[in-house]
Structure formats: C-alpha cells, structure tokens
Design a protein around this nucleic acid. Sequence first.
DNA 1: GCCGTTTTCGGCCCGACTGTTTTCAGTCG
Length: 567
Amino acid sequence: MNKKTIIRTLEKIALYMELQGENPFKVGAFRKAAQTLELDPRSLSKMDDILSLKGIGKGTGSVITDLMEKGKSDLLEELEEAVPSGLLPLLKLPGLGGKKIAKLHQELGIDSPESLQAACERGDVSKLAGFGKKTEEKLLKELESFQSIPTHFPIWSIDAIVKMIEQELSNIEEISKYSVAGSYRRRKEFSSDIDFVMAVTDPEKVREKILNALPISEIVAAGDTKVSVKLDMQDPVDVDFRFVTEEQYASTLHHFTGSKEHNVKMRQLAKSLGKKISEYGVEQEDGSVKTFKTEEEFFQHFNLPFIPPTLRKDGTELDRLDEIPSVIQPEDIISDLHMHTTWSDGAHSIQEMVEANRLLGRRYMVITDHSQYLKVANGLTSSRLRKQMEEIRKLQLQYDDIRIFCGTEMDILPDGSLDFDDELLADLDFVIASIHSSFSQPQEKIMERILTAMKNPHVDMIAHPTGRIIGQRPGYEPDVPQLIQWAKEYGKILELNANPFRLDLAEEYLVMAQELDVPIAINTDAHSIEQLNVMPIGVQYGQRAWLKKENVVNTWSVNRFESFLKK
DNA sequence: GCCGTTTTCGGCCCGACTGTTTTCAGTCG
C-alpha cells in the first residue's frame, strides 16, 4: 500500500474516532501520525523504523504496519462497523462536532443527514440534554442547503471581497489599524472564510458601523471582541472581525494569520521557555503580559527572524530559519517578462505600459503580445510583429532607465507546430510559448506540443504551464514533472503566472522546479496597467514554495538576463 | 494515543462565543 493511502487511512481513523466522541487527544494522535508521515520526504520503503519517528507510537505504528503488510487495518474495519458512514458529512455542519454527533447517534439512532433532518422535524433533537430549540432550528436550516453551498473560495474571489471590505473599513474613524489575516494573508489558493484584525478605540461603535456598512445575510456571532457574519453575495462567504487594542494588535494579527500548525509550534516553543502565547500578547513567567509593536518584534522576543505569513505553514518553517533570508521578496523583483498592449488584447499602449513599469521601479520589461493564431485576442501576424519591434526600438531611445525588450507570447498550435517561423523568432529578444487551445487533447498530444516548444532553440519560456484557472478549470493537465525535466534539459524558463486566477505553476511544482534548478520567472501577464500590480501576489505565492531569489529570473540584472538569452 | 535532561503519569495551545445551563460543555479557529 502506498504512503498517500496510509496517510488517508490514518486520517479516516481519526474521523471515525471523532464521530464516536473519542478523547480529542487520541483523535489528535492519529492526525499527528498522518502528518508525521506526510512531512517525511522519504518513501515508505526507506523508512525502516517507523516507531522511531516522533508522533508515531505503538498504536499508530501497528496500524501502519498492518496497512503495509496486509493492505488493511483491523482498527479501521472495527470503526467502520461501529460508526455509520452517513455520519461523516454531519461533521461539516456548523455547531456539530464529534461529541454531539455521537450523542445523536446513540440516543436517537441518527445515521445520516436525512435521518437527522427527520428527527429535527419531529422535534426529537430538542428533547436531548445539551440540545435545545435553537439548535434544532439552526440544524434544520443548515441541512436544507448544506450540500449545495461551497465551503471554500478561490483566492481571486476572496481578493475582490477583501478589497471591498478594506474600502469600508478605511472609512471608519474608530479603527486605527487593520489587516486581513488568515489563509488569504498566507496566500493560500482557497480560503474557507476571511479574517480581519483591527485596532479600535471603541469596539461597540465599530461593531455597529461594520454591521451597517456591509451586505450581511446573517450575523453568526456578535460579541465584544469578535463579530462573525455571512456576506450576502453570490457565494455566502463568512467574514470574522476581531477587535483589540493598539497594544495587542501585533499579537492578534499573528494569531489570526495562523496557520494553526504554526501557532501550535510557536506556543509549544513559548511554553518550553515558561511563557504563554495568546492573541493578546505573551505572558511571562512572572505573569505579566508583554505586547509588541510589530510582528517582527514578536518573533524577536523568541529570538526568531521575521517569518513571512506565506511561510507559516506546517510548522516545519521553524526548522528552516536559515533559509528565510534567501527567499524571494516582492522588492527583489526588477522586471516583468510577460504583458500585453493594445496591439493585441491589452488595454494600454506600449508607451503607457512602459511608463507604468518605470513607476513600479522595473529596470527591464518585455512586451509580449499574442501571436496570429489567437484571433479572438487580435494576435499579431509576423508583419505586424515586425512593425511593433520597430516601434519598441524607437521608443527605447526615449528611456535610459528601463530596457524594453521585444517579445511575443506565441501560441503552440493544436497540431504541435509553432505560430511563427524560426527566422522571425531569431529576431526577437524573448520568446514565450503558450498553449491557449485544444485543452482537451489527450495528455500525450499535449506533451508532444510542449516538447516542440522546448526543443526550439529560440523559445525562452513556457508561460502558465498548465493553463489552470483556480477553482474553475484544471487546465490541459500536462505531465508536469516531465515538463519540468524538459525545462531542465533544454534550458528553458518556467513561468509562475502572478495573476490570482492562475498562479501557474502551482506550489508543489515550483518546489520540484527549484530542486532541479530550473529558473522561474514571476510575471503579471498584465492586460492593463492595473494588472501590473498583481506581482506581489505572485511573489508571495512563490514564497509558499520557498522560491529563492537566486532562482527567480526577474531578480537578475539586465546583463545577466541578456547573457542567459544568448546562451 | 504519544511523550519524557523537572519522565512512566499527567499533560497535550489558547481563548471566544453560543446555547444550554445556573457554572459550563462543545465547537471553532
């Protein structure tokens, strides 16, 4: 049995135990064991002494050996017999946890969402100790819609809502500071809700103003320090607001940025020093609570460097502190190698894009309009591209603080050929090859197309290598490890497209590419001046893969970039 | 269930909020 299946099985066991109302620490032990396996880079066959791993003991170890040797686990089979699988989805209902579900099962024989609904309708649930009328009504309401409501939202939709909320918060004078926290701040691809942390002078007033300013469909909770609402939007996303004082703000921001695993590790560290971390500060051994002006100060208190939110992941970041200084930062970026103008489907002229890039402090840039095949995007024919090159060369004479390279985003056609001939490609400074069509071809055919581009000596970069749109379409699903291997072999750059709809390559593949020293370019693919601003989103997403500055092309000097192109 | 330079028992990160209670358990993040 492979490692992934074993990890999933351990998690499943934890889930079933939870449904039995088991001791949370015992449940946690199985989750911990699963995580231990997941974080270990070795394959199962190379892990000879499983019991020596921290977090795996007699109980979890025997489950793992059972799975390896017999391909099944007696423990899981017993649990599956004792706990109806119809209870699993009930854990998704807000307000229901293992203990309550166990009680519903034991006392009322509930074994599925349907039987729970029936019991609520009969009024049986409210008669149970610990349950009441309100709980029953709430459950009924949740049950009606809970299959159809999405529970997590792609980063680009969260991005839009965050901006809307920030706009409202900036109008409230009683808020001195605010920040989005949670998984959006960590730049995860999906978030289940949005967290905001703010320093306020008058919590009650702020609470009222927020409730008035936002389109709210439901107030989930409204306490003194916390307001939780469901927004009345196309997708009913939950938003939490936490009010604290200015002094507490840095600690609160850290706390609500997470991740959960990061926080647990930090608290364990504090505890080993006789201190206690909460969202309000750090309690010292003498009971006094120390607060911090910034998150940097907070980390410093534990002799740690600032750990960017994007690196606060599974807790292992605390073991990789010496790598942090070399991880890419938004201010390291001095170029953008992929953007469009009015020549194809962009909204601004070449000169407008140049001016905007200068304002952003870019030292060099590449104009890469679409090629002729992409008619919907007004792709350039070879003669129009030659004209554009002339215009760019002329425009360059006006600027000595930015280099403007002539490029193209050339289509790789469905039949595997390239959209321009070699003669034209040779005259360009920079050639991007992309797939924009026939996504549903079999993987072999897709890979054939990509290989053509890889083998062409004039092609410098493969853009958005999988074509995915987060939460909407998977893309053309190439064999990415193979694609990365080819990039290594043929000396090509792979793109991390910074557009929040794409973020392509994805995190796990960026890790793979970096391991092979394949250069990565983080580009905006901007179709307007405004879209040039997505760069930090891409950089921060790259941080999640621990991308090193050195491996990111856009940090290279113009000379180094040019000599790479000449190779 | 796991762990241990304060070890083989007694903790395991910490606090807010709700709904059910009449001082707190369960859930959530």
